[in-house]
Design a protein around this nucleic acid. Sequence first.
DNA 1: ATGATAATATCGCCTGACAATATCGGAATA
DNA 2: TATTCCGATATTGTCAGGCGATATTATCAT
Lengths: 102, 102
Amino acid sequence: MLDREFFLGFVRIHILYHASKEPISGVEIAKELRRHGYYLSPGTLYPALHRLEKKGYLERSSRVVAGKVRKYYVITQQGLEVLKDASKKIRELVDEVLEEGG
Amino acid sequence: MLDREFFLGFVRIHILYHASKEPISGVEIAKELRRHGYYLSPGTLYPALHRLEKKGYLERSSRVVAGKVRKYYVITQQGLEVLKDASKKIRELVDEVLEEGG
DNA sequence: ATGATAATATCGCCTGACAATATCGGAATA
DNA sequence: TATTCCGATATTGTCAGGCGATATTATCAT
C-alpha cells in the first residue's frame, strides 16, 4: 500500500469532501476510505476527526442508527474554504504530475 | 496558507516528481515548493529528504555549484512506483472532488 | 437489570514537524 | 596555507500526530 506519509493529506480531503455532501459518521467515513484503498485504524481516524472539528472545519452531532450512537460530521464554512484551497493545490499537482501520460 | 496537515503529502509528491525529471538539490526543491506556495523550513525539508532517501525513493549525490556543496537527488525505481501509485490516488481525488465545478 | 454488539474514545509509545541553531566545505583574500 | 566568509546542508529540542491495542459508551434484546 502507498506509504502513509504521502496519502494522509488525501484522506483529510476525502473526509471534508464527503462531509460537504451529506452528514457522515465515523464508520461511514472509514468505509468510504477503504473503498479508496485507505485503511485507517480507529486510533488514527477518530483523533483526526476530533482535530478537524476542533479546528472548525467540521461540525458534529449525534444520531442513533440501528441501536448504536453515531457522531455525524458536516463541513463548515471554514471547512469549505479549506476544501477549495486544497482543490486548487490538487489542480496544480495534476497539471504538473499527471499532465503527460498518467 | 492551507493547513499543513493537508498539504505535506503534496509536497512529497512534488519532490518525487521533480527528482524524476532531473537531479535536484535541497535549495532548488525549496524554491520549487515556494513557487507552489509551500514554505518549508530546513528543519522540515531536509529530514524529509533524508527519509525519502532512506526509504529508497531517492538517491543522493554531491556536486559543487558556485563554490558550494549541494546534494542532488534523483528518483529511484522504487520511487517511480510510489509516484505512480500516488498519481492514481490523485486521479481518484480529482474524479471525486473536482469533477463538478472546480 | 444484564449481556451482547458496534460505534466511538483514549492510552502509550514512537515517529515526524519545525524553528532555531550548528556544521560543513569550497573560494577568496592575504 | 591559514583565515574568513558564505550559503547549503545537518541537527537539536520540543511538541504534535500516527497508530495498534484497549477501554468506554449507548442502545437493544432478553
